[in-house]
Structure formats: C-alpha cells, structure tokens
Amino acid sequence: MSQHLRNRLGSIRQLRVFLSVYELGSVTLASQALNLTQPTVSIQLRQLTELIGMPLYHVVGKKLIFTQAADTLAKYANELLDTIDRLEIELADLSEIKAGTLKVAVVTSAKYFIPHLLGSFCRTYPRVDILLKVDNRGNILARYHQGLDDIYLFSHLEPQMEPYSIQFLPNRLYPVAPKDHPLAHQSHIEPEDLLKYPWLSREPGSGTRHAIDAHFKKLNLQFKPNLVIESNEAIKHCVIAGMGLTILSEYALEDQPGGDLVKLSIAGFPILTSWHIVQAPLKHQTPLSEAFIQHATEGTALGSIISTPN
C-alpha cells in the first residue's frame, strides 16, 4: 500500500460508509442507517478496498467476516473522524457557538429518560447533531473500552470508570407485582416474604441486576430469579401476566402499560442507586462534551426527568 494514502483517499464519506458497515455488520443495515442505496454503499466499499489494496471482508453465507485489515482501518478511521469532529467543535467554540456531533452511548435502562435530556440539550444547542447508541451493558462496555463515543451513561460503574464519572441522577429500584397479587395491597412486607414467590430479573451483568444482587446480599438473603430476561418491557408484561415479581427502575415503571403494576411496600426498599455520566478516557474531551455534562447536571435539565416517588 502506498505511503501516500492520504493523497489517494477519495473522500471522508468512504470512511464513514465503511465504519457504518463495520459496526452494523451488514450492507443493508448500513444503507438504511445512512439513507443510501445498497449499490451506493457497495460501490464505496469496493473503491475503498481497491484503494487499500487488500480485502476488507469475506462473505460467508450471508454474513460479512471482516479481515484484520478492516479492524486496523476501523481503528484509524475512528481516530481520523474524531479529529475532524473535534476540529468542527473547537472552531465553533471559538465563536461561542456550540456545534458539531456528540456521540452518546447508553445502556438500555436509560432509554426512558435519555430522550428528555438530549431533547433539552438540542434545544439549547440547535446546531448540535447527536449520534445515540442504546444497547445492553455488555455492548456499551465494549464501546467504552474502544473509546468509540464521547459520553456514556451507566448506573453501575466499573472501578476504572470512577475517575471519569459524574453522578447526576438518582435511580430508585422498586419491587413490583401485578395489581391482583397477594402482596399488592399489604402495607408492611418483610424481605423474607418475597422469596416465597417466583422472580423475574434482568440478566447478570446489567446494572439493575448488580444492584439487586448486592442489596439481597446485604439482607443476608439469596436472590434466585426463576426467569432471566434482557428487556424491561418484556419483564413488565410477564409480571402483569402473573409469572412472578420483579425489581425495576422508577423510570421503567413510569412507562408501565395500563397501570397494572403495583409498587410493594417492603422494609429496606427501594434500592438506592444513581445514574452516572462517564467520559471516554481514550478520547480528547471537547467543549461540546463538556457543555453536555454541564447541561445534564443543571437543575433545569434534571427537573424534566426526575420523578417524585409515590
């Protein structure tokens, strides 16, 4: 490959198209995300492959298997595009106008309030574009370790995250039952009583599950869910169907279907946790990411998403 690759690269667009295919693992999904036709995406990939001088992927069945060259290209393409984004942001900041693209990645439980937070931020900075990634904790952790985003939202921090984190939002976890459950109308319930019934829970590794396991350990009780589900929405519907009890964030409960779930009055509950904003340690922090953190921690922004517990 020529050492003058910078002089041969057709456009930044080729790299953006490649990264979309690389992250989504599909030409079809990338074309949909970029609002381009599949032939256009395929042409961009072919031109980039010819430019690099070695294959970027192989097709096995209907699946794309990326080569080591693609892994290396993705790493440096992300760095290059991040540099361009920082240039745009810092030039805009010189004129005291926050603009550019902010990459935000959040775990799925944050989906109940992140639209309100991003909405108020975009109203304050209308020239800002947001790239939002919502996924399970494992995938968001992987993005954090690769430094793919500017800002992350976690309820449970890994030890190495603490120097880069800011606590900004309370996150109370409530035990809940269907409205016709025997415990639903009792005013005083001991934690031991909960273990007489089946339980549904998020998967091990999720922030909610970590908080639940730690809380029951403090109570000297063993928490063993009968059914593990990776979706809060599916858990809520299973509880309504009478399949068991669960513990969910207050934000997930605000969006409950039909008011069919009841918070249980149990000694030692709710479980008190917090949401944290985490900055990517591998990325240079821009004025735009700092503006987001300031906005998120202000009282006006918090007021639109903080709920008053019943």
Rank of each mutant, 00 (worst) to 15 (best):
V239C: 01
S120A: 11
A142L: 11
L48N: 02
I84E: 10
S11R: 00
H295T: 14
P287L: 05
P287M: 05
I266M: 03
L15D: 09
L173C: 07
F113T: 03
L248M: 09
L227P: 02
E250Y: 14
P191Q: 01
L56E: 08
G244V: 02
I140Y: 05
L248C: 07
L64H: 06
V134C: 11
Q279M: 15
A241V: 04
T297I: 14
A280G: 13
H145Y: 07
A267R: 04
H188I: 06
K218S: 01
P178K: 07
E250N: 14
G244Y: 04
D82W: 05
G258C: 12
A241L: 04
W275M: 11
T37K: 13
I89R: 03
N171M: 04
F223Q: 09
F113S: 02
V104F: 14
L87T: 04
L118Y: 09
I306Y: 06
V41P: 07
F113D: 03
Q279C: 15
K63T: 10
A252W: 05
L87P: 05
T83W: 04
S274V: 06
I52Q: 06
G25L: 06
I52Y: 03
K283L: 07
K62Y: 06
I306E: 08
S206V: 03
K133W: 14
A234R: 12
I151Q: 01
L34P: 15
A267E: 05
G25R: 05
D71R: 15
K111D: 14
G147Y: 06
K283A: 07
D255E: 09
Y76I: 08
E96Q: 01
L5H: 07
P257S: 10
V104D: 08
F154E: 06
D71Y: 15
H156Y: 09
A33P: 06
V262M: 11
Y57M: 04
P182E: 05
K103R: 13
H210G: 08
P178I: 07
A280T: 15
D71L: 15
F216V: 06
V17Q: 11
I166Q: 15
Q14W: 08
H58C: 12
L169M: 13
E158M: 03
E250F: 15
P270C: 05
K218N: 02
I240K: 09
Y112Q: 03
D213C: 04
D180C: 06
S155N: 10
L173I: 12
L117P: 14
G258H: 13
G147E: 07
T124G: 13
A211V: 11
E233K: 13
Q285S: 13
Q285H: 12
G205E: 10
A33C: 10
A77K: 00
H4I: 06
I277D: 09
T83D: 02
A291C: 02
L80D: 00
Q44P: 00
I12G: 00
D149T: 14
D150A: 12
A177D: 07
W199I: 00
S187Q: 09
G258N: 14
G242C: 01
N139K: 13
I277N: 10
H156P: 03
L36H: 10
L157G: 03
E158I: 02
A70V: 14
F216G: 02
K111Y: 12
T37W: 12
L117R: 10
S20V: 13
T246A: 08
K218F: 00
T124Q: 15
S304D: 04
E79R: 06
K133Q: 15
T67P: 07
E50L: 00
G299D: 12
Y76S: 12
